[in-house]
Design a protein around this nucleic acid. Sequence first.
DNA 1: GACATTTGTAATCAGAATGGTTACAATACC
DNA 2: GGTATTGTAACCATTCTGATTACAAATGTC
Lengths: 159, 159
Amino acid sequence: MTSDFAIALHILGFLASRRGEPLTSEEMARTYGTSPVIVRRVLGKLRRAGLVESRRGSGGGSVLARSPGAINLRQAYEAVSPEPRVLPRHPSRCNEVVPVVVSQFINDTCAEAERALLRSLEDVTVERMDRTVRSRIRRAMTPGGSVAIQRLRSGGEDS
Amino acid sequence: MTSDFAIALHILGFLASRRGEPLTSEEMARTYGTSPVIVRRVLGKLRRAGLVESRRGSGGGSVLARSPGAINLRQAYEAVSPEPRVLPRHPSRCNEVVPVVVSQFINDTCAEAERALLRSLEDVTVERMDRTVRSRIRRAMTPGGSVAIQRLRSGGEDS
DNA sequence: GACATTTGTAATCAGAATGGTTACAATACC
DNA sequence: GGTATTGTAACCATTCTGATTACAAATGTC
């Protein structure tokens, strides 16, 4: 599922803001606007990657498996897409020599470009995301009291 | 279409290797292993981006609009995906404040990661792709005479 | 000018991918 | 035992994707 990454980041954001208090998939789903099963599916991937921990039963839910500062968005990305490929790593469609070799070149080039993308994601931790989001919300709430969500687009960046 | 980028690179490779001689969509489609219409659709995008030129009628076909050294893979990428988005630029699904702000943060972060990816693609010109492919084919053909396509995977890189 | 060739593009189709729901077993707390 | 919650499998509807068919518009050849 292509939106897994976005959902994963929302989940990590929710959990980071709870600072250790477990949160249920039902609550996250309600706040985010999807179904608990979708959330649990992504939670499963994050759990297998060692980023979150879950407990069943009454009073259960999920928490971050480590401090938010020790989790970065690259890890989240790789957790939800086992074969991380944002660009088409294309199988050649025929046995002509030229297309096969060109496909090989495309694969190599896309792999390199993808590494650049992942390096960029690596720089952003869940802690920084949490801080940035908190700060933006603070700034959006203070001006007039009533929520100014419309004006939230492209707010500045500060810790 | 997700495979447009791969097809675009194959097309640019075909045209570069022809050094100005027009090539028909039918020939490219046959060599690549798809239908001429698919090729023409991608050709249309490349044409609108000013990367290739086409002529109808008998003796027609397409050629590169500039020298292969003046075309890079980032241009090809942007030609086929007008709103370049390799990562989900996700619309928020509800009006809760937190998810909206988190979505905003995700968008910003993904945009930055994508810029890193595009910078990487920018470094590779069609000319370099053509040279690399030629060199790999040469090396694959010489050893034993019979084609050694299987062994083409992950060949070295040289101009 | 008639004809063959080739592009440009719209309409349509089948199959895959995607997001979602329902269902239910397995845990864990009370 | 009963309730709350996770973990998954099975299934469904919709959208996306690649492909085909069809045909008008150019362009060169005779």
